[in-house]
């Protein structure tokens, strides 16, 4: 990118001129970039700090706030419901991400081979990603409904017992995960496809000449070269997975259904703040979520920073 711009000799201009020009001489430039910062300050920074302030209050959303100190946070630490929500979120994340990546990889490999109507397939696989989640959740609710849903009808047809997709704690988690998988397989497949196409055919050819079979080529050459793309997908799915909300809300309700099996962190935050009118505690939960996400980001970062760089990957 930078190569395209005309090169400016930075050092020649710098110390003397910088000190002699007051900040306001750059005003036009600051003004020009200001819209982003103003919007970010109003809709990004301000709410963050307000939430920190709110977490120390008791507030029903309308009347005057009441100082609560660290009460909300001490309550949060001993709140079994919140810990359960964290576990639910992580479990659903694992249950959705692992199959999703495997499926997406298979789809990408399929699309990468010589087949006809590639464009049509790509479009078809991407469509779920741009479909309204609410509409999808309603459709999934029907598909997985217990007495008359198509999934249970298929299970009974092949002689299996129907499953309580929306009334069994694990059934609920599976259904929510299925929805996330359905939504994101296509998106990740397209990204993997881009990654696959970036791998130089010469490398694959060289592997073949060295006598590697298809499986060896895939595991020893293609996968390592795809590593950055895979990590990107895991990271993106982690960001999405920490925020799962609409799927359980529509499928099993705000409390997350039986044994609160579908209650994710964000759903719990919503229930406390907007159902139970406890905005102070809601803000405390939001900060709890921030800490969980930070920990998660830290783990992710450590994984990405692992030294095995596999040269040609970039």
């Amino acid at each position: 990118m930078t190569d395209v711009l005309p090169r400016v000799d930075a050092p020649a201009e710098s110390p003397a001129t910088k000190t002699s020009r007051p900040w306001f001489s750059f005003l036009p430039q600051y003004l020009a970039i200001s819209p982003f910062y103003i919007l970010f300050a109003v809709f990004g920074i301000y709410p963050i700090f307000f939430a920190a302030y709110l977490a120390l209050q008791r507030w029903d959303g309308i009347g005057p706030m009441e100082w609560a100190g660290l009460e909300n946070f001490t309550f949060l630490l001993t709140d079994g419901e919140f810990w359960d929500a964290i576990i639910n979120t992580l479990v659903i994340w694992v249950m959705s991400t692992v199959p999703m990546i495997v499926l997406a990889l298979l789809v990408a490999l399929g699309l990468n081979s010589a087949i006809r109507f590639k464009g049509v397939y790509r479009l078809a696989y991407f469509t779920p990603n741009v479909t309204s989640i609410v509409a999808m959740a309603i459709v999934f609710g029907s598909v997985f409904s217990e007495e008359f849903g198509i999934v249970n009808a298929l299970l009974t047809a092949i002689g299996l017992d129907p499953v309580g997709w929306l009334s069994d704690p694990w059934g609920i988690k599976v259904t929510i995960s299925a929805m996330i998988i359905w939504r994101w397989v296509g998106y990740n497949a397209i990204i993997f496809l881009a990654g696959l196409q970036a791998i130089s055919p010469e490398v694959i050819e060289a592997a073949k000449i060295d006598g590697a079979n298809a499986w060896q080529t895939f595991t020893k050459v293609t996968l390592p070269l795809l590593r950055p793309v895979l990590l990107f997908s895991v990271l993106m799915s982690a960001i999405g997975g920490m925020q799962v909300f609409v799927e359980p809300q529509i499928l099993v309700g705000v409390s997350g259904g039986v044994e609160n099996a579908g209650r994710t962190m964000v759903l719990y935050f919503y229930e406390r703040a907007f159902q139970q009118n406890d905005f102070g505690y809601g803000a405390a939960i939001a900060w709890g979520i921030v800490i969980v996400v930070l920990l998660f980001a830290l783990i992710n970062w450590r994984l990405v920073q692992r030294p095995q760089r596999d040269g040609a990957a970039r």
């Binding site: 309580g164 009334s167 705000v254 409390s255 259904g257 039986v258 044994e259 159902q275 139970q276």
Partner: peptide, 23 residues
């Protein structure tokens, strides 16, 4: 009362646990 909705949620969830999860 203003607490009704918050309180009701717990009864609804728990009675659902009895009916559907055999609690």
């Amino acid at each position: 009362s203003y607490m009704d909705i918050g309180i009701r949620t717990y009864f609804q969830t728990e009675i659902k646990n009895v009916e559907q999860a055999g609690k």
